[in-house]
Structure formats: C-alpha cells, structure tokens
C-alpha cells in the first residue's frame, strides 16, 4: 500500500511544489478515478488494469480543467481564497458523486487478478501486489520524467523560480496547467489500482487524502523522491502496527508518527524548507 500512498502523495506534492497551492480536492480526484475504473468495468467489462490509462487520462484532463477554470482565477488572490476554492471543489465533487451515483459501496467483481500469493510464508493479495508494482513503476516514470526530460526540468525550474523560468523562455502558465494534469494523472493511476480491491463510494477519498497529506508532510513538501520514501514508511507503519498492536489502531500509530516528525522535524524527514 505504501507505493500507492506515495503515488497519491506525489501528485499532491508536485502541485504544491510548483505553485504553493494545496489541492484539498485531491481525495475526491481519487474517488473520481475509482468511479472511472468502476464504470469502465460495469459498462464495458474493462478490468481496472485495462482501463488504467483511461483513468489517468480522464484525471489529467480534470486537473488541466481545474487549473484553467478555477485555480488560475484565484492565483493572485489571498491564501484563503485558494484554500476555499479547492475545498469547495472537494465538497462539490463529493456531493455530485452522491447525487449521481448514490452512497452505495460498490466493488468490482471477478477482477483479472485475484487470490493470494505466498512469499516466504507471508500471504500477499495478488491485486495488492500488482498495485504496488504498478504504482512503483508509475512513480519511477514520474521521477525520470521530472529529472531527465526537457519538460520535466522546465517544471522543476518553474517550481524553483517562476520569474527566472519565464526568462528562460518557459511558458510558466503552461507549466502550471501541465503540473495539474500530471499531478492529477498520478491519482488517476492510484485510483484505478485501488479500484481492483477497494470499496468504491463517494466518501472514499477522505481517508486516502488524509494519508496523502501525512505522507507529503512526512517526506517534506515539494520533494518528489522523498515522497516515495515517506509513502513506504507510512505503508509499513500501518502494516506493522496492525500486526503488532491491533488493526483498529493502525492509523493511530501512523498519525502518531506524523505528529512526532512534525514536532521534531517540521520541514519533513527529507525537507528543504
């Protein structure tokens, strides 16, 4: 699960690092991605693994549209306006999902992958394993894109100094839109993967978004590779706490860890700020 958390958090971190805007609708974006996977299966019998590119594309388009339709208009405004813009979007999307699709828990039945695998005496669900591997793959792809490609470097440059980037001939407005598209595509992939084995309902984003904020803060804001490490830490803490103490307490331990880090190292474990 750590890799999936990391991927969700990476999308959040990318957008924040780029323009210091926290997307409070990130969890709802994840929920929408899961519904994309669900309807692809319910209407066209496409397995979530097959419809993964569709979920990524749909969310990229949503991110792009959110930037152009909403974020761009409040960028020059006060911080509160930015917070309430994405917070309002979150409420709108969640309520919209309840209105359109009801509050029922849905699951995708007979997925392509099912059953469990025994690895050295430890049972791992096959869908969970596939989700981890694919999330890790997506994460590495994101990292390589950001650190190797021309456009990725332009994104980094924009994040580090907007004005200097513009003077390099970089269209920073386009980079912002691209950042929203890529950051949202990350939750698109994560949502598609989660849809293989998780309940799908309008409120599903909340818990994951909370974990994503914790993961981002744990790793350090705006630092994408650190997010992977933090995601794995959160995932492992959750599993170990569930095993050693009791499953009901696993999130309490995760948040306790988060509180400890924030108290002693407020910039995050690998943070720059």
């Amino acid at each position: 699960m750590g890799c999936v958390y990391a991927l969700i958090a990476a999308g959040l971190s990318l957008i924040f690092g780029l323009m210091e805007v926290v997307n409070f609708a990130h969890g709802e974006f994840l929920m929408l991605a899961m519904y994309v996977a669900f309807f692809a299966w319910a209407l066209a019998r496409l397995d979530p693994l097959v419809s993964l590119p569709l979920a990524a594309l749909a969310l990229a388009a949503l991110g792009w549209a959110t930037y152009h339709g909403l974020i761009r208009r409040v960028l020059g405004g006060p911080m509160l306006a930015q917070i309430f813009a994405t917070f309002g979007l979150a409420v709108f999307l969640r309520s919209g999902a309840q209105f359109l699709w009801g509050v029922d828990f849905r699951t995708i039945k007979e997925p392509l992958l099912s059953g469990r695998l025994s690895v050295g005496g430890v049972f791992v669900g096959l869908p969970q394993l596939a989700a981890s591997v694919l999330a890790l793959g997506a994460f590495l792809g994101l990292y390589l894109f950001l650190s190797r490609s021309e456009t990725g470097l332009a994104l980094q440059a924009t994040a580090q100094d907007r004005q200097a980037a513009a003077l390099m001939g970089i269209d920073t407005d386009r980079m912002f839109a691209l950042g929203w598209a890529i950051g949202s595509a990350c939750v698109g992939v994560a949502g598609g993967l989660l849809a293989m084995f998780f309940y799908i309902f309008p409120e599903v984003g909340g818990a994951f978004a909370l974990l994503a904020y914790v993961t981002v803060a744990l790793g350090g804001f705006g630092n994408v590779p650190a997010t992977l490490a933090a995601g794995v830490i959160v995932g492992l803490t959750e599993v170990v706490a569930g095993l050693v103490i009791t499953p009901a307490m696993k999130y309490a331990v995760v948040f306790l860890l988060y509180l400890a880090v924030v108290l002693w190292r407020p910039q995050g474990l690998f943070g720059r700020f």
Binding site: L153, Q156, A157, Q160, D161, Q163, A164, A165, A166, L167, M168, G169, I170, D171, T172, D173, R272
Partner: peptide, 24 residues
C-alpha cells in the same frame, strides 16, 4: 508580451542576485 515570448525574440535578462535554479 509575456516574458517567455520576448526571450525567444533575442532579448535575454539576467536578474538581480543571479536567481539560478538552486536545486538544479
């Protein structure tokens, strides 16, 4: 015109205090 279009026409600007991308 936006800054990125002006650079493309052959007018470069080095900002005060260098303003390099610190982590690149």
């Amino acid at each position: 015109l936006p800054a990125h279009r002006i650079v493309a026409r052959g007018l470069a600007h080095v900002l005060e205090r260098r303003r390099l991308f610190p982590y690149l």
